[in-house]
Design a protein around this nucleic acid. Sequence first.
DNA 1: ACCCAGGGTCATA
DNA 2: TATGACCATGGG
Length: 224
Amino acid sequence: MSAAFQLKRVFERLDKAYDYSTWHWQPDTPRDYVCIGAVLVQYTSWSNVEQALARLAEAGALSLDAIHRMAPAKLARLVRPAGTPDTKAQRLLALARLAADHDGLAKLLSRPADELRERLLATRGIGPETADAILLYAAGRPTFLVDSYARRISSRLGLGPDGDRYAIWQDWFQGALQADVEAYQRYHGLFVLHGRQTCRPQPRCTACCLVDVCAEGRRAAGAT
DNA sequence: ACCCAGGGTCATA
DNA sequence: TATGACCATGGG
């Protein structure tokens, strides 16, 4: 069975088991909200990010433009619930500076995808996953967003490449799945919804919507 | 009292 | 290249 076929079946299952309309990044979500959230969610649960976003909104600072003019200490105080506040304040300021250097976020996001990705990656505190989150959900470009859930869930299904490097995984997914912005957005959201629901680091799940696919993956791995 | 969270950077070997 | 320490708060 091809990876493409198996992945298609997995996403059909996840689509039935989870309601993607509850996903917090939809096509009409403000770009600033996506970009700020993408930084804040690094190594943190989304519930913590929501608290930080609420504090930013309360302070009228839910935009990179407002953040650009803010003192680091004040910004750190606002984003504290998201954890690593000083680090994230610096990273948000770096991203806000990048946007300002390009005459605003909208203009930055309208640049060619490869060039945009390079500039994001050249920004302190923005790695491949954060860059791709911005590309996929804020700039609407078809880049496959690889996160720990995508790797963990796929691995347990007996899918995925050898190695753990980001680019290897991204190439693998993009080789199996036709480039499609809305589909890539949905895949990522479904992976996260499933991952935080039941696919924990220590595998102790006995039943979920993918149990039989998991068992097939184990058999295939054992057979080869 | 644990374990976990949608990463990224830096120092070491 | 690859592994480990570090960042720090909130929820289960």
